[in-house]
Each structure stands twice: as C-alpha cells, then as structure tokens.
Amino acid sequence: MFKVASLLMTPAAKYLMLAFAILFPLVAANEYQVYVMATAFVWAIAVYGLNIITGFCGQLNLAHGGFFAIGAYTLGLLTADYGWSFWPAFLGALVMTAVLGFLVGIVSLRLKEHYFAIFTLCVGFIIYLLIDKWEELTHGAIGVRDIAAPYGFGLVDFTDTTPFYYLVLAFLVFAIWFMGRLSKSLLGRTFIAIRNGDELAQSLGINLMRNKVLAFVLSTTYAGLAGALYAGMVRFIGPEEANINHTFDMITYLLVGGIGTIMGPLLGTVGIVWITQSLQFLEEYRMIIFGPLLVLLVIFFPRGITGSFLTWMHRKSQALAPTKKRQENKVKTAQNREAESNA
C-alpha cells in the first residue's frame, strides 16, 4: 500500500497522472464518466483554495462553500440576467469572489482560531440565506437557468462534455502548478509559519493581517474560479450550491487527501467522488462512513494519505542516519518530558 502510494508522489508519477487525465476521455466507458471526472476536477480546484487558507495558513474557513456559490451565482446572473458573455462574466466572478473575500477577510481574520471558524460558519450561512431570500437578485429557490457556456472562439464547442473536461483540466493544472510554486516560495513558508503560531510568526517579523488576508483572498478566488466553472458546466444553479454541506464535503476531501500537501486535494477529491459514484447507495448515506472517517483521520492520520506517505518516505530516505543513537535520545527526551509534566 505504502509502496504504491510512494510511487504516486514522484515527479514522474505526476506526469503519468497528467497523461492519464489527458487520455481519460478516450478510455472512459461513456460520456457520463467524463462528466463525473470534470465535476471532481471542479471541486478539486475549490479544495485547493481551502488548502491555502486552512492547510497552509491554519485557519479553518467554513464559508468556503459560500464563496464557491458566489462564484457560480456571479457568473450565472451576469450571463443569464445581464447579458454578459461567458468569459467577461468569468472574470467578473473571480473579481467578485476576490473582493468579497478581501472584505470578509479583513473583518474575520482579526479573530483567532475558534472565533474565526464560528464567524466564517455564520458568513457561509448568511451567503446561503441571501441567495435563498433575495429573490429580486438571485431568483431565490427557483434558481438561475440558461447560464451561458464558455464560448470557444469558434475553435471548440464547450457545450460538449469532453472539450469542457479539457477546459477544467487546464484550470486544474494551473491551480496545482501555482499551489506547488506557492508552497515552496517564501510566501508559502510565511503562511505555514502563521499556521505554526501567530505569536511565533509575529516574532519572525511577519505581518499577520496582511499575509492572512492574502491567503484568504487567494482561497476565495480559487473557490470563485471553481464555482464559475461549475455554473458554466451545469448551467443551472440554485441556493443549494451554498449549502454548508458542500463546505463539509470539501473539508473531507482535503483531510482524506492530505491537508497542507500539494497532491492531497486532488487525490482526496477524485478518490472520494469516484468511490461515492461507484457505490450508489453511498450517495445519500456517505456521511455514515465519511463522518467517522474524518474523526479517525484527525486522530490517527492528521495529514491524510499524501501527508502520511510523504513523512514515511522521508523517514525511509533518512534511515541511513544513525538510527540507534537517535532512538536512545528520543527515549531520553520522552522521559524528560514526562519529568517536566510531573513537576
């Protein structure tokens, strides 16, 4: 099990995965499978956003599904009600989620830990209520119909499933590429330092607010991007897109795949979407399994599939080091710690 997975983490494996994703529509049994995969990719993009603020920066954002919905609704309403064509509306959706993310961020990120989670939970719910009740703008429970599909400048027709699949794949690849670059950069390290602790980060000269807001805006923009793609794909959306359960789903994908890792969001999302798809009875009751799974993960494998493998691989590669002495030391420190806590 570990071996198979460790192969998945090498750079070569990433290109293999990309090759598989490119070839997938050719080997898929039917169009429906391509559609499911495209949906999984859309969600994965949103989960990458959650990974920035929650995985890297350590702030549990429970409004993420709300921003996904804002992205979807911005695109939907601009194209269906205001006659915008797809790509300008798409840009509009990104700008809208970034700006709203900024506004919510400067208020909510002054709050620490629990307060931030509770606050964003409420923000997520306000977004849902507004979409549901503000009928003049959003059509309320009726939802938005006749959303424009992306136009392909006469080259491709994105109303077909397969071209749309490639469009989503392109955005996904960009999202992952940027995430990879971010994580290795000084900026990504800054986010991780904030996750390690506010006070420590500040003592390292890091401006908490500026960096947290930046991470938050990046994450909501990812959510908006995913939401806009989603609206362009299904072309009919309703208030349910803002349901808090979507946020919980995304947290599950992130935790299973590996929070704070690069490939985790993709593996978690695609894996769970397909498992849920192939076991139809799970669709409705999937949380009977995923709920306890979340609990078990945070207790035993807090870094998910990817994180656990990375740690395992690293230890393996370092195994040449003088292990014995190291272990003795460890025993010693364990005793020290115990002595300390007894004191």
């Binding site: 940027f178 000084l186 900026l187 996750r195 000269g205 890091i206």
Partner: peptide
C-alpha cells in the same frame, strides 16, 4: 515552547526566519 512544522525538515522550518528581510510577494511567486 516553539510550535514548529513537525512534518517538515529542520532546514525547511528555518528558511522563513529570514522572511522579514525579503520583499517578494504574490506576483514574484507567479
């Protein structure tokens, strides 16, 4: 007590220490 990124290497944990003397932002990353 210093909370560090447990699953990262010692060196990786230290690189951010010099962040305050640097200026790169989002655009530089992109």
């Amino acid at each position: 007590t210093t909370n560090l990124f447990e699953q990262a290497t010692v060196l990786d944990n230290l690189i951010v220490g010099h962040r305050l003397r640097t200026k790169s932002g989002l655009w530089d990353v992109l």
